[in-house]
């Protein structure tokens, strides 16, 4: 991907992220995520209904990579089934960690395909996916109960 286009997409999501602002609605599942090594700190809420991710919102303070990744992840995952979401997150993590991944699944998340070149920023990109991961586990657990 062209470097300028990539930067424009990231910057746009950083400056105008989707769904910023938490909601007061306990049908959402809440998860905070922060990094041990830096100062990114994100709260997320996800609403899952009838097998579909209906909504995700977030708030917090984080760097350009972390904030934009949160926004793009939210945009990508809304409307997906639990299994689709899991697959996307797995492929996203693989991309950041320089493993095999299927770029067709990642939609706009593909803008982070070179984050691995700045190892200290991998954590920034992974932070929101870790939060979603935990929420998906909670959903899994609930469906088993």
């Amino acid at each position: 991907m062209d470097k300028n286009i990539r930067r424009e997409i990231i910057l746009d999501h950083y400056q105008n992220p989707v769904n910023r602002g938490l909601v007061n609605d306990n049908s959402y599942i809440y998860q905070n995520t922060r990094s041990e090594s830096c100062i990114d700190n994100i709260d997320m809420q996800l609403k899952y209904e009838d097998g579909i991710i209906k909504d995700i919102v977030f708030d917090g303070e984080a760097c350009a990579i972390c904030t934009s990744a949160t926004s793009i992840l939210i945009k990508t995952l809304i409307g997906k089934s639990l299994n689709q979401a899991k697959t996307i997150i797995e492929n996203y993590k693989n991309m950041i960690n320089e493993k095999e991944y299927d770029e067709k699944l990642l939609e706009e998340l593909i803008v982070y395909d070179e984050v691995y070149m700045q190892p200290n920023r991998k954590m920034c990109a992974l932070l929101p996916s870790n939060a979603i991961d935990k929420i998906l586990q909670i959903i899994d657990q609930k469906s088993k109960d």
Binding site: C38, I39, D40, E61, A62, C63, A64, T67, R121
Partner: peptide, 8 residues
């Protein structure tokens, strides 16, 4: 600008 981005 988030302070971490400034430090980077």
């Amino acid at each position: 600008v988030f302070s971490q981005d400034t430090a980077i």
